[in-house]
Design a protein around this nucleic acid. Sequence first.
DNA 1: ACAGAATTGTACGGGAACGAACAATCTCTT
DNA 2: AAGAGATTGTTCGTTCCCGTACAATTCTGT
Lengths: 265, 265
Amino acid sequence: MTHRLLKLWAQAAERDVSVLLPGKGQAMSHLPNQPEFRNQLLAKLSLEDLDLLRPHLKPVQLDVRHVLETANEPIQQVYFADSGFASIVAKDADRETEVGMIGREGVTGLPVLLGDEQSPNDTFIQLAGSGHLLPVDAMRSAMEKSGTLRATLLRYVHAMAIQMANTALANSKFNVDARLGRWLLMAHDRVDGDQVELTHEFLAVMLGVRRAGVTQAIQRLEERKLIRAARGRLTIRNRRGLEKAANGSYGVPEAEYTRLMSGRS
Amino acid sequence: MTHRLLKLWAQAAERDVSVLLPGKGQAMSHLPNQPEFRNQLLAKLSLEDLDLLRPHLKPVQLDVRHVLETANEPIQQVYFADSGFASIVAKDADRETEVGMIGREGVTGLPVLLGDEQSPNDTFIQLAGSGHLLPVDAMRSAMEKSGTLRATLLRYVHAMAIQMANTALANSKFNVDARLGRWLLMAHDRVDGDQVELTHEFLAVMLGVRRAGVTQAIQRLEERKLIRAARGRLTIRNRRGLEKAANGSYGVPEAEYTRLMSGRS
DNA sequence: ACAGAATTGTACGGGAACGAACAATCTCTT
DNA sequence: AAGAGATTGTTCGTTCCCGTACAATTCTGT
């Protein structure tokens, strides 16, 4: 794992209890009139494709900082989130930054979908939630058996590639305020309610900037009444305003995801 | 196309002649003892998989600025380069930056490999060269027919995803000198000889910084005798030194490419 | 209630890169 | 040879963000 994150996690490690996100978390039991899965990728699959996966899907709740993938180590399972989301973090010796975010719109373990078993990035839960784990073997064999499943998952990979490309663009051309806005909007898309629970220090690692810089950017957004800040928690008050603050850094990948995933399976 | 690039290209548009890169370009005729394709992806394919593609491969020379893919428009063909390379550029209303580089180690048209037909990015020839064009339909049907072909291409997609993730990291955490070093090394990997032909202005767009900033970064690298600068041309003099100058921003995607592509097809 | 720890607020000087402008040099065309 | 245009060199003040440090606040465990 990576420097700053390692340190952060060590601090928080032992006092955490295994709870779901406190906000207005919904019970995730299987209600009669609700789709079987809240995960949008699973929800989109045909019954046949779903049957390939279902026997191996294991419902779980995952806490913040739960590590799904460690750099350069074989991936054991992929994760279909129903709530909360994960972050993909690229790093070198002493630098790290988020390059991708995966919530209920997708699945972790992109290397597996592409026929590999590892990558130089870490992936971990950024915001606690529930979902389903699937062993990589089950994923692989299902993808071999079903062309439609494969097609859906690969289109999702493309959506993620676009998200990563836009992250590169954002990191290069947008200031901290805009990047913070973008991040909050992406988080908001993947959260029930309007609250995101994390510390400035964490956000700083994600955005690749100083912690103090995040604090000040948050204050500016709060002054504009776009968010509300509390210790360990940010609340989105004005999404439209945030989109303006993001200044164009948000939206392209999201539109592409819709285009890619709304077509026929 | 994008703002600054559009302007740059308009300037240079009409005076260009259709030549290969001047450096020490090799004749690319099919010599008896040489592999049939210099493109590493094609070279790696089994004879059967290659037979699926060969009838549709059309040898071409592509000039600088030749547009292979335009944002949000259907991709017509993919391109296997034998020499030279292409850049993938992500953009918003008035910002643009390179997010990926594709030379003879790969193929353009990642969206096609993932079952889509377009993306919000532009792709164009950055350094002139030769290679083979393949209509997307041929690509698609070949991928449907052959699982091994598909596997190889998808592993390449993964390599590109890692490159993009590292670009995001580089843009976030490295200064202009390191990023310039990284870019030159990546270009060097894809070029015959040690020369790269481009202007500071172009490089500025790729790196997402000011033209004046590039000029000064080049001067600093030249002072350190790592490169030689001439009008419209940079020459790599000391690759090892450049790697040091890149300060860790170069290497991870390249190592991953080797790992991914050196295994059994 | 208190101590200790984590989180957030704030300030300082410094440096990297910015936007803008203009000069100097090179190249191509005529 | 001259002129036009492209490219590169250089400078100015400015802005953003950095690294660092420390204080203030809030939470947690006992």
